[in-house]
Design a protein around this nucleic acid. Structure first.
Lengths: 132, 132
DNA sequence: TGCTAGTTTATAATGATTCTAAAAAGGTGT
DNA sequence: ACACCTTTTTAGAATCATTATAAACTAGCA
């Protein structure tokens, strides 16, 4: 099974709950954005047994740490995650409160000219806010 | 008084509390980043009378709406604000949890190639995460 | 099978932010 | 200065996402 290996290879035990969450997150044609609340609802629909909220939080954080999910920097009372872990950016529609992917190629190259001694760049994230 | 006019001109009554918060926020040589918690402490130090936490929240939101403050999009449990309202971006030092200004000239021009029908771009914000 | 560390779980705790509704203060006209 | 009305301030309660707790469970391995 693909997810069993994926989890084992990153040092996470392939528990029933984690495998089921993998299916909800990664067995999809398209990648998507979600909050914990969104994910909880999706799990309720797609998974027969109950998975506790604490486990959902634990799992999402574990996956994020391992690089299977990305957090999206945005000012909202809830944290947004993305199953699209490729290097890309986002539109944020202020009215609909919805995120839209911006492919890397939709944004010209970004060149950070300033350097900070002893630090290196981990990521560059662009958020483009949209209004009507 | 400069702040009285500033507030009046934007339709905000120049109350004692708002004027005192203006002094804490804008009577500084350099601009700075802050959370509500940071600002509360600064006010306690610099202002003799007490200003309630609710007023601090109300005032910061009012100032943000009027464009005197900017919210910084970042994943944190607290909301960060910036007294620097010029068009600029940020480094975020993951270890020290500190924000550092990136002048607009420190980041090459950013060209958003994708368009969304009926929407226009309100802002483009870049967050550069730093690690050791 | 039995052990042990890693996981899950329900629930409580935390903490930032927002709400409430009563008191206070600003602004205008008298 | 006073009355009046609206806006603002305030303390405290309420909300809500997230994290902590600690007991029960489970995967992996000898």
């Amino acid at each position: 099974m693909k997810y069993i290996d994926k989890l084992r290879n990153s040092g996470l035990r392939p528990t029933k709950q984690r495998l089921q969450i993998c299916e909800v997150l990664f067995d999809t044609e398209k990648t998507f954005h979600f909050t914990i609340n969104d994910l909880e609802k999706k799990i309720k629909k797609q998974v027969s047994n109950k998975i506790s909220l604490a486990t959902i939080y634990n799992t999402v954080h574990a996956f994020e740490k391992k690089g299977y999910l990305k957090q999206i920097p945005i000012n909202s009372n809830q944290t947004y995650f993305d199953t699209n872990i490729s290097d890309h950016h986002h539109f944020y529609d202020l009215k609909d409160e919805k995120l839209i992917d911006l492919e890397h190629s939709d944004v010209g190259p970004i060149n950070i000219l300033k350097k900070i001694d002893g630090k290196k760049i981990k990521s560059v994230e662009v958020l483009v806010k949209l209004e009507d």
